[in-house]
């Protein structure tokens, strides 16, 4: 019904316009007053077309911004892939990966734990931009201790926990040690084996949406071949 206004008003104006053209007499006997009326009647169509042009321009500008925003991320991932390929040992791979994870996801804490059999051992951890000295002390028994790491290993999939305080014991201890409220994990997979688990955590409560988990998994997947090589 709303769109029909445009068609009907347009057709009505065309009919009256043709009549004036044929009879060559001003509407209601006064050309100037009629011009004012016609101008008022045309205004909505002019506004509609002008506003629409503005919106299209704004949308094009927005898409342009998104594209330029995505470009650095792709470039960062490519740079990281190159650095990972040149890394000589597990520790340097972990450093690169954790720096990329804390920066890319804007989180305070990131860690990488190696999976050997049913045990996860901390390889590196980073808190507030600095490496933590105690990652080796972090040991998680994957079978006896339910945790985010164990779930990421057994499900071979990324996961997020909104409230670590209500999470299993293993995560609670870690959360208390670094004062974290929310966390996310992603496995580094080579073939069918989970080599390690990348974890991130925040001091504030944060729901890691699908795009955050996708980025975390992208980082983990990118580092897996380099870690397998070393």
């Amino acid at each position: 019904p709303l769109a029909s206004i445009f068609v009907c008003v347009g057709a009505a104006m065309a009919i009256v316009g043709v009549l004036v053209l044929l009879h060559r007499e001003p509407l209601a006997g006064n050309a100037w007053v009629s011009l004012a009326a016609v101008s008022l009647a045309v205004l909505p169509a002019v506004l509609f077309l002008v506003r629409r042009g503005d919106r299209n321009a704004a949308r094009r500008g927005h898409i342009g911004e998104e594209e330029t925003g995505a470009q650095p991320r792709r470039e960062r991932m490519a740079t990281l892939a190159g650095e990972l390929a040149r890394a000589q040992d597990g520790e340097s791979i972990a450093e690169l990966l954790l720096a990329a994870a804390t920066e890319g996801l804007e989180v305070e804490f990131a860690s990488l734990a190696l999976i050997e059999g049913t045990t996860a051992t901390g390889l590196a951890a980073r808190l507030d931009g600095r490496s933590l000295p105690w990652p080796g002390e972090l040991q998680v028994d994957l079978e006896r201790q339910p945790s985010g790491i164990a779930t990421a290993v057994f499900e071979v999939a990324p996961l997020a926990v909104y409230d670590l305080a209500s999470s299993p014991a293993g995560d609670r201890e870690l959360a208390e040690a670094i004062g974290a409220r929310s966390g996310a994990w992603a496995p580094l997979v080579a073939g069918e084996t989970v080599l390690a688990v990348l974890a991130v955590a925040t001091r504030g409560q944060r729901a890691f949406p699908a795009e955050d988990l996708a980025l975390l998994q992208e980082l983990a997947s990118g580092a897996a071949p380099a870690l397998e090589r070393t």
Binding site: A3, F6, V7, V9, G10, A11, A12, M13, A14, V16, G17, V18, V20, L21, H23, R24, E25, P26, L27, A31, W32, S34, L35, V38, S39, A41, V42, A45, V46, F48, L49, R52
Partner: peptide
């Protein structure tokens, strides 16, 4: 003259207005 005024001030604006309305309808789909 009143004839040319009618065409210039009424017929042409009416036809231009009609075209704008029909263009808007086309844009709306």
């Amino acid at each position: 003259s009143s004839e040319s005024q009618a065409i210039l001030l009424n017929a042409i604006p009416l036809l231009v207005g009609a075209a704008l309305y029909l263009l808007s309808a086309g844009v709306l789909g």
